[in-house]
């Protein structure tokens, strides 16, 4: 029997280890509980409910009848849906690259030693703390074709300034893109700036010794070492660009003839769900957006191995 003792010993130590592990697990769960509960109640549950609603015809207060794929069939035959899908993709396709390039540029410039650095950083970050609805309202005035500052400025430069920012179907999306870029450059710049400051100065010193130009240093050192932040910025920017809504909602009235050239998927979702009170159809539209965002994000996560440098 004594011969078995070592085994018992290892068993008890194993048990102790297991206990310790269990204990760790317990505290682990406790610590993430607030986030987890919040996520379940505020995100996961509504997602499931939205999927459920998208297969139903829903009256305003609760009662819903199962109608199978009818909402989805209606959607695929709805010209408004396709138009808003293409508006949304076009918006994201232009707004995101412009934002990322401009915020990288701003971050690099603000990472140097110039006078009033913190003033500039604050200025760039300001759009982030302004309420989106207020921002859109101010831009609506700026874009006014007769009294707006933008057209007045263009006119003072000697150009023909009769630009219908808010009613010309070929321009309205650009108006929204301008506001979108303006309001997100600051936030992304701060994230990138944080990344830039983590890059060791030694690399640059060594590169300078070797005679590399500033431009070459930027492409060979700064960019590769900034990729984790760039990746983060890219993922979040695409997600938020695909969800564009408030600017459109505030800048364009329902009687605006060019609304159809600018309305996004979220706008159509809002209009169907809350103005026309057709929650089932609205849910179907938003599910499509969720799928699109999910697919794009998964592709990005898989693709990151190809270009993102961690360390």
């Amino acid at each position: 029997m004594e011969a078995h003792n070592p085994q018992v010993n290892t068993l008890t130590t194993k048990k102790a280890k297991l206990n310790k592990k269990k204990n760790m697990m317990f505290w682990g769960w406790i610590l993430i509980a607030p986030t987890l509960i919040g996520l379940l109640v505020l995100n996961i549950f509504p997602v499931i409910q939205t999927v459920y609603l998208s297969f139903h015809s829903v009256s305003t207060f609760g009662q819903s009848t199962f109608i199978g794929l009818e909402n989805y069939i209606k959607m695929f035959n709805d010209a408004d849906f396709w138009q808003s899908l293409s508006n949304t993709l076009l918006y994201a396709g232009i707004q995101v690259p412009v934002t990322v390039v401009l915020s990288t540029l701003a971050a690099v410039l603000l990472n140097t030693k110039i006078k009033g650095l913190s003033v500039y950083r604050t200025l760039y970050f300001l759009p982030m703390i302004a309420a989106p609805a207020a921002v859109a309202m101010v831009w609506r005035w700026l874009f006014n074709s007769q009294y707006g500052l933008i057209n007045l400025m263009i006119e003072s430069l000697g150009f023909n300034a009769d630009i219908q920012w808010l009613s010309d179907p070929s321009l309205v999306l650009w108006a929204v893109i301008i506001v979108g870029v303006w309001s997100s450059v600051g936030y992304n710049m701060i994230l990138l700036l944080a990344g830039l400051q983590e890059i060791s100065k030694d690399y640059y010193e060594a590169a300078t010794m070797d005679g590399a130009s500033k431009l070459r240093q930027f492409f060979q050192i700064t960019l590769p070492l900034l990729t984790p932040q760039l990746f983060f910025v890219l993922v979040t920017s695409i997600i938020s660009a695909l969800q564009v809504f408030d600017v459109i909602f505030v800048m364009f009235d329902v009687t605006n003839p060019s609304l159809s050239s600018v309305q996004s998927l979220v706008y159509v979702f809002f209009h169907e769900s809350y103005v026309l009170n057709d929650k089932g159809y609205g849910s179907a539209i938003i599910i499509v957006l969720v799928l699109i965002i999910m697919i794009i994000t998964v592709i990005q996560l898989l693709g990151q191995k190809k270009w993102v440098n961690y360390d």
Partner: peptide, 18 residues
């Protein structure tokens, strides 16, 4: 560097929950 970014998102998550 990667772990810093994980920390950041954790902080944001916890903050929101609080």
């Amino acid at each position: 560097m990667k772990s810093n970014w994980k920390k950041l998102s954790l902080t944001i998550g916890l903050g929101t929950a609080l």
